[in-house]
């Protein structure tokens, strides 16, 4: 892929993120900023999930657990070692990556649907361990994490500042995911997604790269967890159990896992839709369920993929597809 084309694919996301960064100019409510911050932390995790699911074709139903590892790592580091936000970031990212590897090595060996079940079980298991961890994990009540987040001496705890910082992290996550997609590493992951047998015959160590993609998704999740923990000031096990994981998988599918805009769209939509439609939690679950089924059946590339295709059809009269797009069957005709 030519660098020019690759760069152009990043541009729309950067423009959207620039607009999002300008939102505080319109003095939004605190409620809006809070929703946006938690959506932003989700989007960071979703960029990791898009590498795993969109590029490599592996679905994890335990992604929130990896976010939780990052969040608890940050809280425990702050409590026991007096470690602040900026040091916690790389350490928590590493902790989530290591957890991903520990879960990934046995799970990815068995392959396919087993992996989905293993990651789901891991999410449940982590919640149980955290709930029964006594004072160390704060049991069911969880842990508080106090402490200011400062950047170049400025206190970032103020809602607007934290919002801007999260937007910066989302941008970094989008650029990182874009860089992966357009690298030889990204091509390798797509090859595995398309046809493992062929990939192996061409010298690709399929098992190692699948574990690697899971570990990479863990890094994104860990960073997301630190941002979430410092934002909420309090974390508890239920935030990282299977339900939140399913939500993350749902968001990335609704947005479109293979497109750079997908995680952003999915994260924002799922966060704000109930707000906009004024739905209670039960109603919004129903709406998400229906959305998911509709996306799976009608828009294999997610919402953004669907919109892009519709625009193409509208402008050129025929659908044309690109490399990262399209849910093609994994094997060519026999």
């Amino acid at each position: 892929m030519k660098t020019g084309n690759a760069l152009r694919s990043l541009l729309p996301v950067l423009v959207i993120l620039a607009l999002i960064a300008a939102v505080p100019l319109f003095s939004p409510s605190n409620r809006f900023l809070s929703l946006a911050i938690s959506a932003g932390t989700n989007v960071i995790a979703l960029y990791g999930l898009s590498v795993l699911f969109g590029q490599t074709g592996i679905l994890s139903m335990g992604h929130a657990a990896l976010v939780g590892v990052g969040a608890y790592a940050a809280a425990i580091l702050a409590r026991d070692f007096g470690v602040g936000f900026w040091t916690a970031l790389p350490v928590a990212a590493l902790a989530s990556a290591v957890f991903a590897m520990i879960v990934g090595i046995p799970s990815l060996r068995v392959g396919g649907h087993h992996f989905v079940i293993m990651t789901f079980a891991f999410g449940q298991l982590l919640a149980i361990v955290l709930t029964n961890g006594g004072d160390y994990t704060g049991a069911a009540t969880g842990l508080d994490i106090a402490g200011p987040v400062t950047l170049f001496g400025a206190d970032m705890s103020d809602l607007t500042r934290y919002y801007l910082m999260v937007v910066a992290f989302v941008t970094a996550a989008a650029v990182a995911s874009w860089a992966i997609i357009h690298s030889s590493y990204g091509r390798t992951l797509r090859a595995i997604r398309e046809n493992e047998k062929l990939a192996a015959s061409l010298g690709i160590n399929v098992g190692r790269h699948k574990i690697g993609a899971f570990v990479v998704s863990g890094v994104f999740a860990g960073i997301s967890g630190v941002l979430l923990a410092y934002f909420l000031g309090h974390i508890s096990p239920s935030q990282f159990s299977s339900f939140p994981s399913i939500y993350l998988a749902l968001m990335v599918m609704i947005g479109g896992a293979r497109l750079i805009e997908g995680p952003l769209a999915g994260g924002i939509l799922v966060a704000f839709l109930p707000e906009v439609l004024n739905l209670d939690p039960v109603q919004s679950r129903i709406v998400y369920g229906v959305c998911l089924i509709a996306v799976i059946m009608l828009l294999p590339d997610g919402l953004i993929g669907g919109i892009v295709r519709a625009l193409r059809v509208a402008f050129s009269g025929k659908p044309k597809q690109e490399a990262e797009r399209d849910a093609a069957p994994s094997e060519a005709r026999q």
Binding site: T188, E194, K197, L198, A332, Q334
Partner: peptide
């Protein structure tokens, strides 16, 4: 006969030469 069906023809060959 098989190839990476969802990817471009050139990208297919590119991948095959990278490992």
């Amino acid at each position: 006969a098989m190839a990476f069906a969802g990817l471009g023809v050139l990208e297919n060959v590119q991948i095959a030469g990278e490992h």
